[in-house]
Every structure is written in structure tokens, then in C-alpha cells.
């Protein structure tokens, strides 16, 4: 038990302390940070870092962009992967193995190799600098996991339940909504959360497709600004905090079911 406590203590220091540190420094003045001490006098604290960041960046706009894009990615990936996984799980499709393997194998494609051709595709579809362009492209990051996860879930639901619903006169949509989804709900939570977080964190795809304030996301702005704000660490910390906090809030709500669902689903493969 002592060993366990030591491990808990060490891992808390390692995993949580860096975040506490930047949160703490985001309220400190430049001078206070430059003293190179951990604790500083009360006058070393300020809200100015946040005020400055909010005044130089169009923060509300980028926040809205991020939320819009991530929500759309979440919803579309949910719809596509629920139907897709249901199809893979319930129907005797020819080449099913190839489809599953094909989709999973995209996880090994190097993104850097696809970057320039991906731009050409998005450009020829006239989707550059559009929310839809980013959403559709980000789907490739999340779909393989979502399909795989949900298929695992659906496989565990006895097929008799579907049949019973069908006999009661329900069509496919009704079967899904009344029978399958409630049972697979933990899995759906995981998939939704995963999609949201991956989309929120994405840097590479947004950096290619976004060209203006219409589509720039918070993560993109953060990584860009933090390289030009160097040394003004207070502001950098404020910016990082602002980017992190939304996912943390979401995580706080989803956390418990997430951990259950994530692992339960993974085991079913």
C-alpha cells in the first residue's frame, strides 16, 4: 500500500504539476516570472495576461470556430459510424474483412505524406477555408476508431432483440433508436468524446485548410501565437490555459462513463 501511495504521488507530480504550473504562471506578471522563483509577492499577480490575449486575438471567434467544427465532427462521425458499424455488425457483407482491414489500415498512413495531395483534393472540391472542408477531413482521423469501437459494441447485442423489434413492425431507424442505441450508449459516449477531443486538438489538418478567421481554430491560433510570443511567458500560459480548459470541462463531465466505455469496448474486439 505504501508503494501504491508513492506511485500515486509521483504520477500526480509528473502528470498534473505541469498543468498546475502553467495555470499558476498565467496569473503572474512578466517580472514575477523572471525572478526565477516559484513563489512571488502578491503584487506579482495579475489578470493582464488574459486581458492582453483576449484583446489581441479574436478569441470568441476562434472559440466558436473550434466548438462548431468539433461538434460537427462529433455528430457526423456518430451518424456515419453508427450506421456503418451496424451494417458491418448485422449484415453479411461480401468483403467485410477487407473493408474492416482497409479502414483500420488508414491508421498507419503517414499524414505528412498525404498533406499536399489532401490539399489538392480539398481544393478541387472547393472546400478550402470552409468549415465543411475541415470537418470532412477531420473525419478520417476519427472514423476508424469509431467504427471499430461501435462494431465491437453492436456485436455483443443479441440479434434476437433486432428481430423482436422488426416483428413489432419497426423499421431500421426505429430498431437503432429503440433497441441498439440505448444498450450501446456507453460506447457511443466514448466515440462522441473521442471525436470531439481529436477534432479539438487537431493541428496539422487545420493548418493546411484554414486560411482566414472563418475557420481558424483555437488550437491552431495557440500553436502559432505561442511561437511568436516567446519569453512573454505569462501570455503564453494564459493562451495555453484557455485552449486546455474547454476540453477539461468536457472531460470532467464525461470522465466516468468514458473510462468504463472505452475499456469495455476495446475488450470486445
Amino acid at each position: 500500500m505504501i508503494v501504491a501511495y508513492i506511485i500515486i504521488f509521483v504520477s500526480l507530480c509528473f502528470f498534473i504539476l505541469p498543468m498546475v504550473w502553467i495555470f499558476y504562471c498565467s496569473f503572474r506578471t512578466q517580472e514575477s516570472i523572471f525572478t526565477g522563483k516559484i513563489i512571488s509577492a502578491l503584487k506579482g499577480f495579475t489578470f493582464n495576461n488574459y486581458i492582453k490575449i483576449l484583446s489581441v486575438t479574436d478569441f470568441p471567434r476562434y472559440f466558436v470556430n473550434s466548438v462548431t467544427i468539433s461538434s460537427l465532427v462529433t455528430m457526423i462521425s456518430l451518424i456515419i459510424s453508427i450506421f456503418g458499424a451496424y451494417g458491418l455488425s448485422r449484415y453479411d457483407i461480401k468483403g467485410k474483412k477487407i473493408i474492416i482491414f482497409g479502414i483500420f489500415s488508414t491508421q498507419m498512413f503517414p499524414q505528412v505524406l498525404m498533406l499536399i495531395p489532401l490539399f489538392l483534393v480539398v481544393f478541387s472540391l472547393n472546400l478550402m477555408d470552409k468549415v465543411l472542408g475541415i470537418v470532412l477531413t477531420q473525419l478520417i482521423l476519427v472514423l476508424p476508431f469509431c467504427l471499430w469501437m461501435l462494431k465491437g459494441y453492436f456485436d455483443t447485442i443479441p440479434i434476437d432483440l433486432d428481430d423482436a423489434a422488426e416483428i413489432d413492425g419497426g423499421n431500421l431507424i426505429q430498431q437503432l433508436i429503440y433497441v441498439i442505441l440505448p444498450i450501446a450508449q456507453p460506447g457511443i459516449m466514448v466515440v462522441a468524446f473521442y471525436s470531439f477531443v481529436v477534432s479539438w486538438s487537431d493541428y496539422l489538418i487545420v493548418s493546411v485548410i484554414s486560411q482566414s478567421q472563418n475557420t481558424a481554430t483555437l488550437t491552431l491560433i495557440m500553436s502559432r501565437l505561442s511561437s511568436s510570443l516567446l519569453i512573454r511567458w505569462g501570455q503564453v500560459c494564459a493562451l495555453a490555459t484557455l485552449t486546455i480548459v474547454p476540453t477539461l470541462i468536457l472531460f470532467a463531465f464525461a470522465q466516468k462513463r468514458l473510462i468504463e466505455g472505452l475499456t469495455a469496448g476495446a475488450l470486445k474486439e
Binding site: 479574436d58 493548418s207 486560411q211 478567421q213 502559432r224 511561437s227
Partner: peptide, 24 residues
């Protein structure tokens, strides 16, 4: 537009070289 690009000359150049033809 009040968005002034990537904010680093190198990123700005990389992006413009690839994407100038989008008109933005």
C-alpha cells in the same frame, strides 16, 4: 478580414506557396 495569416514568415511562405491558387 482581421485574420493576418500564420504569424511566422516561414509558415506564411509555406502556406502561400501551396495555396495561393485558392485566392486567399
Amino acid at each position: 478580414d482581421n485574420y493576418y495569416g500564420p504569424g511566422k514568415y516561414k509558415d506564411q511562405r509555406d502556406k502561400f506557396l501551396l495555396q495561393a491558387k485558392t485566392g486567399i
